[in-house]
């Protein structure tokens, strides 16, 4: 298949970026989207041009590195699919594909399509952990865990922190990400201990970093490649209100 590409090019974080157009022939429908990008870069290198910078690592949908805002959607048109799992067969022959970086003041562009998502790390440093003694693993059955909660926590732990929620949200809100992390820890007895401080610290950090607030538009849920639902945001709100009103 032959495709036309419209890709955001930006030299560095200070430079003013612009779109550049490319045409790519002989693209196989079996190609992964990132393979297509590699194919393009190979062509650009052979032509003596600067290849397009984009972030990637595992290429199997678990590292959360690949971002890309493809044709008006983070991670492209497929539901519950990361950019790296996207195949070219989901696009039409001759189609123009517009690729932009995730847009948010909190995720500044480093180069071309790569954005700095360290804001998520800062939120996690503020409370996305449990405090436990190191050493040999304790007896597994010493702390009973309800099966239902364990399953739910596991669903939340599926969040790979890719930032699609922020990219999709009209307010660049990180609520779905924070909600997944808070819920994951809060549902388990080991995480429950620090629940009050955790939710307050993570929300305070999220606000301090400048993410927007939640408008309950639910674009995050629609675009999350790992299927985290907005029920998690309600749980986060509940935890936060509990921490602010009841626990103090």
């Amino acid at each position: 298949m032959n495709i036309k590409l419209k890709i955001w090019r930006q030299k560095n974080s200070q430079a003013k970026g612009k779109f550049e157009k490319y045409t790519l022939d002989n693209v196989s429908p079996e190609m992964a989207f990132l393979e297509m990008m590699d194919f393009l870069n190979q062509k650009l290198i052979e032509e003596g041009k600067e290849p397009v910078a984009f972030e990637h690592d595992c290429r199997e949908g678990i590292c959360g590195c690949c971002s890309l805002y493809i044709n008006g959607q983070p991670h492209g048109p497929r539901e519950r699919t990361t950019t790296c799992e996207l195949r070219m067969r989901f696009f039409k022959d001759g189609e123009t594909i517009t690729i932009e970086p995730f847009r948010s003041r909190v995720f500044p562009v480093i180069k071309d399509l790569i954005v700095d998502r360290s804001a998520f790390d800062k939120i996690l440093i503020a409370g996305g952990f449990i405090s436990a003694d190191t050493g040999s693993a304790p007896e597994a059955n010493s702390i009973p865990v309800c099966k239902h909660h364990s399953d739910k926590a596991f669903d939340m732990a599926a969040c790979i922190g890719c930032g699609a929620c922020v990219a999709a949200c009209k307010n660049s809100s990180a609520m779905l990400f924070v909600a997944a992390k808070v819920t994951q820890f809060t549902l388990l007895p080991q995480g429950r201990v620090e629940a009050v401080e955790r939710v307050k610290n993570m929300i305070a950090k999220m606000d301090e970093l400048g993410f927007g607030s939640c408008s309950n538009t639910y674009a995050c849920e629609a675009e999350c490649p790992k299927g985290i639902t907005v029920a998690a945001i309600a749980k986060l709100n509940r935890e936060f209100l509990h921490a602010k009103i009841v626990a103090e």
Binding site: G72, Q73, T98, E100, K170, S172, Y218, A219, A222
Partner: peptide, 24 residues
């Protein structure tokens, strides 16, 4: 106002995510 300034550079392509229409 807070939300408006979080995304200084808007997307070139109109967002196509499924959202609840009136909330926007």
């Amino acid at each position: 106002l807070r939300n408006y300034f979080v995304r200084p550079i808007k997307y070139a392509v109109t967002p196509r995510s499924k959202t609840s229409c009136f909330s926007r």
